[in-house]
Design a protein around this nucleic acid. Structure first.
Lengths: 335, 335
DNA sequence: TTGAAAGCGCTAACAC
DNA sequence: GTGTTAGCGCTTTCAA
C-alpha cells in the first residue's frame, strides 16, 4: 500500500494525499475527509525511508551508553527514551562498551543512520586527551551532541550536569563534622564526573587537614556488579594496616561493599563506621542499615537534556551547559 | 556527498561504486582500489534511507521492553543489543510501559520504521485474552517476532524461555526438605513466566500437602523498586497473624524484602527463616546473608534468541520454541 | 484547492 | 568488468 494506491482509491493526486498526511491547510475539508477515510480503511502508513530520503531526517535520536545494565545508566536511558517518545522522536540505542574504538564505531553508525541528534549518557565518553575526543567533535559537526553528566567545550555540544563537586564536598564536610576523621574515598571511575566527585572529597579533606596519607584514595578496578570483590578490596586495605572509620563512595555499589566490610569487621553502623553512597539508587535501600546517598536528580537532568536538544533541533539558541544541584538523602549509614 | 559525486571523481559509473560499496566480486581490483580511495578521501558514507528505500530493510531490529530500568530487563537488553550489533544489526529500543495501549503504539511505530524483526523482552507482553494479543499477531504478519521468557502460539512468533516451572518446583521441594513447611510465595507479576513460577511452587507444595491456607500466596502490588513497601507487605502479613518461616520470591527484590523482614522480626537466617530469590541478579549479593537465587541463564537465552532470529531472517527453518533449564545458586539464605 | 513532475540517493536488472 | 536506467515512496515546488 503506497501513496499512489491511496490517491487512486480516493480519486485525488498523490500530492493531495501527501498534504493530508502532513496536515497541510490547503486541502478542502471534503477532500481531506475522503482521503482520510481511505487511509484508515486500508490502514495505510507512509514508508519511513521514502520520507526520510526526501526530508533527510527520520525523527530519530541516537543514544549511546557504555553499559545499559548499569543501574544508573539504565535509569537514565529509561527517562530519556520516554521523554523523546513523548515528543515524537524515537531512539536508537547503542551499548558501546568502554573502549574508545567501539565508541567511535557506534558514533559512526549513528551518523550513518542519519539520526537527528546524539545523546551520550554518562561521563565515560570524554577523555583526557583532546585528540581522543575527536570522535565527538566529528559527530557534532553533523548533528547536535548532548552530554549527560559530562562536559566538553566544542561547538554544537551541549551538556547537562549535576554539581558532583559540591555534593561531594558538602557530604564530606558533614561526615567530618560528625566526628569521623579517617575517611576512605572509594571510587571506580576517573570519568568527568568521577573526577569532580573526587575533587569535592579532596577539597573538603584538605581544608580540614585530614588528607595526610594518600592511600585514603582507593580506586577499585573491576566489574561494577561484583560487590564481593569490592568488599574484598576494603578487607585487604585493613589487612595492610590502614585504619579508617568511614567510607565515601562514588557509587552506591561501592558503598554497599563498605557496609558489608563493616559488618565483617564487626563494626556498628553508624556508631563505629560511617558510609556514604552516590546516586540514591535501588541499592541504597537494599542493605542494613540503609545507605545515606547523594541523589543527583537524574530525571530532572534528563528532562532538561531533552528540552535542550529539542530546542537546538528547532533552531533555537540554547544554553551550552546547565548545572543542577544534588541532594544528600540521609539514611542509616551516617550519623 | 552522494554516489554520483564519488562516481564522477573516480571516473566510473554509479553502478560500479555501488558494487564496490556492497562488496560485489565483479569489479577489477584496480577499479575497486580507485573507487575506495575516493570514498576514503571524502569520507563518504552511503545514505541509509536511499538504501532502505530500495531494499526495504535497514538491518534494524526493534526491541520492546516494559521498563529498561528493571534490573533483569536491562541486562537482557544489554546482551541482545550487543549480540545484534555483532551481527551487523542495530536496534531501536522502545520502553513501552505496562499498558496494552502503549505497547500497541510502540509496536506500530516499529513496524512503521520498517524494522526487520521485533524482540519482546519479558513476559508481560502476553495477555490472557487472545484478543489482547492481536497486536502481536498483527506485527508477526509483517516481521518475525521473538519472545524472551514468554510463549505464544502464533505463526512467525518464536519463543525462547527458561523453564521457570521446573526451577521453582525443585527449589520449593529443596526448601521443604530442609524442614521449612510454612512457605509464603511472594510475587508481583502474573505474566507468562510469573504464572509458570507460581505453578512450580504450587505443585511442589500440593504434592507435600502443605498448601492449606490460600494466603500463603502473596501478591505484591507496587513499584519493583520500592523495597521498603515490599517489606511492609510482609510485616502486615505477620500482624494479621500469618505464621511463616520461609519466603520463595518471584524476584530478587522481593526476596531482599523478605530478608529485611526477617531481620526486623529478629529471625536468624537461615536457621529460623529461609529465603529464595529469582534471577540471580546483583541484588542477590547485596544483603546479609547473600540470597540463594535461581539463575535462569539470561545470556544463553539471549544468545539463542538472536541466533534464532538471524536464522529466521535468513529464511531458515527455526524452532518455534526453545527451553533452557535454570540453576539454583546456593548462598546464605537457605539451609 | 488541486495536479504534474522533479528530485532525494541507492540497488539491481539488463545491456554491452 | 562496466555502464545505463528503471524504480523504491515520498515531499515539494510550480502551474493551473
Amino acid at each position: 500500500m503506497t501513496i499512489y494506491d491511496i490517491s487512486e482509491k480516493a480519486g485525488v493526486s498523490i500530492a493531495t494525499v501527501s498534504r493530508v498526511l502532513n496536515g497541510s491547510n490547503n486541502v478542502s475539508e471534503k477532500t481531506k475527509k475522503r482521503v482520510l477515510d481511505v487511509i484508515n480503511q486500508y490502514e495505510y502508513t507512509p514508508n519511513a525511508f521514502a520520507r526520510g530520503l526526501g526530508l533527510n531526517t527520520m525523527k530519530t535520536i541516537g543514544i549511546m551508553c557504555a553499559d545499559s545494565s548499569d543501574l544508573y545508566l539504565a535509569k537514565a536511558i529509561y527517562y530519556i527514551e520516554q521523554k523523546l517518545r513523548a515528543n515524537g522522536y524515537d531512539s536508537i540505542l547503542c551499548c558501546t562498551g568502554y573502549e574508545l574504538e567501539t565508541k567511535t564505531a557506534s558514533m559512526n553508525l549513528l551518523i550513518t543512520k542519519k539520526v537527528d541528534g546524539i545523546i551520550l549518557v554518562g561521563s565515560n565518553f570524554i577523555y583526557e586527551k583532546d585528540s581522543d575526543n575527536k570522535y565527538i567533535a566529528d559527530a557534532a559537526a553533523q548533528v547536535p551532541v548532548m552530554l549527560l553528566n559530562a562536559d566538553l567545550d566544542i561547538p554544537n555540544v551541549y551538556s547537562v550536569v549535576s554539581d558532583d563537586f559540591t555534593s561531594m564536598y558538602e557530604a564530606t564536610l558533614q561526615m567530618i563534622q560528625t566526628g569521623v576523621k579517617d575517611i576512605v574515598y572509594f571510587y571506580n571511575s576517573t570519568s568527568y564526573s568521577g573526577k569532580r566527585k573526587l575533587a569535592g572529597y579532596r577539597t573538603a579533606m584538605e581544608e580540614k587537614k585530614l588528607l595526610s596519607g594518600a592511600n585514603l584514595l582507593q580506586f577499585y578496578h573491576g566489574s561494577h556488579e561484583n560487590i564481593p570483590a569490592m568488599t574484598q578490596h576494603l578487607v585487604k586495605l585493613h589487612e595492610k594496616g590502614l585504619k579508617f572509620h568511614g567510607v565515601i563512595a562514588a557509587d552506591d555499589s561501592l558503598a554497599l561493599a563498605a557496609v558489608k566490610y563493616a559488618r565483617e569487621m564487626g563494626y556498628r553502623i553508624p556508631e563505629d563506621f560511617s558510609v556514604l553512597g552516590y546516586n540514591n539508587s535501588l541499592l541504597s535501600v537494599c542493605c542494613e542499615p540503609e545507605l545515606t546517598s547523594i541523589d543527583n536528580k537524574l530525571e530532572t537532568l534528563c528532562q532538561h537534556l531533552i528540552t535542550t536538544l529539542l530546542g537546538v533541533l528547532a533552531g533555537n539558541e540554547m544554553p551550552k551547559k546547565t548545572i543542577f544541584s544534588g541532594e544528600i538523602i540521609k539514611r542509616g549509614t551516617t550519623r
